[in-house]
Design a protein around this nucleic acid. Structure first.
Lengths: 198, 198
DNA sequence: CCTACCGATCGGTAGG
DNA sequence: CCTACCGATCGGTAGG
């Protein structure tokens, strides 16, 4: 009977908890953010949170795997497209940037706080992460073989690009000074084209 | 009398504590690493740590400001050199890479855990960080004016480059597969020259 | 450097 | 959804 959603108030309350959790985990870090902090942000007593969630770890788990799944689906999609390696790289980078702008808190938490997952999930997450990077590197290597891309170490290039994007703490702040699109183009120019003129 | 160092066993013990703390804070995060963990790593009881340090926060404080000072001194030095903007950028990037290789744990902790500093130090650290980035951006802007560097948003370029370097979790692991120098050259090639051929 | 211990806070449960 | 509360663990101190 619990499977039939007769009342979406329950669901929406859980969504509020998850959203506030993402925000708190990003602000303070997973360990430093307490369930009492979260309860206060949601507007209930700490004990009441447990009517909607199983544990603090479950919150982190949900956040991390939501993000991981989105990236996994996107790389599935891009790999299958009949476009050049450079176009694939650029599409993937633009997706990372869009994710950072649109789901900043979750992506940030997923990237920095996954260490605090517990072990069936921890290993699973690390494996997905490793696989994703390998597939990204394979695209770059294809680009090198086709002479579209410079002869660089592909796994290093992947790390550089991903960290360059996810490391930026303040997409909101940045997007105030320059528009999101201008920022995105800027990043693609730098990462794909480099700094120097010629 | 405490200022006269008659016995360096005290100093060396403190160094062990600081080193192990850096390692633990990197591995588990500042909040998740307990003083009991640290005591075990050092080989004493938790209470004994307090004969050498004032508090857990002081450990973090020392780590963060040691790193910050090294970067500040380096940018002082580089700004004063009579070389082109592009050469300055490259020197600074190489310094960041060297720091990551030689003082990995401290630099990593300083970069990811400074949020847990307390407030006279927290603001101070944030200000230094902001200032450093501004000075780095000014070098890039000089490069743009002299047409050495593409017309990009300099503050964004700074963030990209710094995160690309400090984000890499596994300099040790990476340096096994390819040498430290090869890795360094690789990164400079990608960041300064870009991915594409031409 | 250790034993003994403190007050605070944590994630979470019982019971209604 | 709340009140009441638990056992565990935290950073740190007293005293020797």
């Amino acid at each position: 009977m619990a499977r039939i959603k007769t009342d979406d108030k329950n669901l929406s309350r859980k969504d509020v908890i998850v959203t506030k959790a993402a925000s708190l985990f990003r602000e303070k870090g997973f360990k430093a953010a307490s369930m009492r902090d979260l309860a206060e942000a949601v507007g209930v007593e700490a004990a009441s949170l447990y009517n909607h969630i199983k544990s603090k770890t479950e919150l982190l788990h949900d956040l991390c795997f939501n993000v991981a799944n989105r990236f996994m689906h996107k790389i599935d999609e891009i790999e299958a497209e009949p476009i050049s390696a450079i176009e694939k790289i650029e599409k993937l980078l633009r997706f990372h940037i869009t994710e950072m702008i649109e789901h900043y808190e979750e992506v940030y938490v997923s990237d920095r706080e996954w260490k605090h997952l517990e072990d069936p999930y921890l290993s699973n997450f690390q494996n997905q992460r490793r696989l994703y990077r390998k597939r990204f590197a394979a695209i770059i290597e294809a680009g090198i073989r086709q002479k579209e891309v410079k002869e660089i170490d592909a796994p290093t290039a992947v790390l550089i690009m991903l960290h360059a994007i996810t490391g930026i703490e303040s997409w909101h702040r940045s997007t105030q000074k320059i528009s999101a699109e201008a920022l995105e183009d800027n990043m693609i120019t730098i990462l794909v084209g480099g700094l120097t003129n010629r």
